[in-house]
């Protein structure tokens, strides 16, 4: 079976560990082997959290530079920071709502220009899908559902080997009962946004 390598980058607290878990559960449902790794560490203290998810027969749980088939960024500057994981055939999906790192407030660095950021990523990879997923999460009823919006968009691109329904089922089984409806709505909004952009 072909291997699909997915990197998710986010800022601590944006819920990318839950997103990976949903994908893992969906893969279990679909009978697709999956291995994932993540660096927890000080995620809750506002650092960067990176998850690697490898679908298919590979044994490795991490993804080297230049070897991601798809990169999903929950925050635009983090997507750009992780672009070294991509190659010319990579599909990149990114949120466009910035969460500037605290160093910006301290005057130690300038947040990249959003248009320029997209141009740079787009020029290097096969496809960039960029939209304000935070806004769609808010529309679904909870900004914390940003992760589900991006999962919806990811599933629409067809790069990962599961169906949207398998992921919807996994959302129902994995996320907190009180949030399932919001999460599913967020997932569908993300799916729709990606379809329109395609």
């Amino acid at each position: 079976m072909d291997t699909t390598r997915l990197i998710i980058v986010a800022v601590g607290g944006q819920g990318n560990l839950l997103a990976s878990k949903v994908l893992g559960e969906a893969a279990l449902r679909a009978g697709i082997p999956v291995r994932m790794s993540e660096i927890h560490g000080m995620a809750q203290r506002g650092g960067v959290v990176e998850s690697a998810i490898v679908f298919g027969d590979a044994q490795s749980t991490i993804i080297s530079d230049g070897e991601a088939n798809v990169l999903v960024g929950f925050e635009p500057s983090e997507t750009l920071r992780a672009v070294g994981k991509c190659n010319a055939d990579t599909v990149v999906i990114t949120n466009l709502a910035p969460l500037p790192p605290f160093t910006v407030a301290l005057g130690k660095g300038v947040y990249p220009d959003i248009d320029d950021l997209q141009e740079r990523i787009r020029s290097k990879v096969k496809k960039l899908l960029a939209f304000d997923s935070t806004a769609l999460a808010r529309k679904a009823g909870n900004v914390m559902a940003n992760n589900m919006v991006l999962l919806g968009a990811l599933l629409q691109t067809g790069v990962v080997p599961m169906t949207a329904d398998q992921v919807r089922e996994a959302i129902g089984a994995t996320t907190k009962q009180a949030f399932v409806d919001t999460n599913l709505k967020a997932f569908d909004l993300g799916y729709e946004a990606a379809r329109k952009a395609a």
Binding site: V11, G41, P101, K108, P112, R120
Partner: peptide
Amino acid sequence: DVPDIPMRPPN
């Protein structure tokens, strides 16, 4: 050509 992205150390 990727500009310097401000660091995001844990805080």
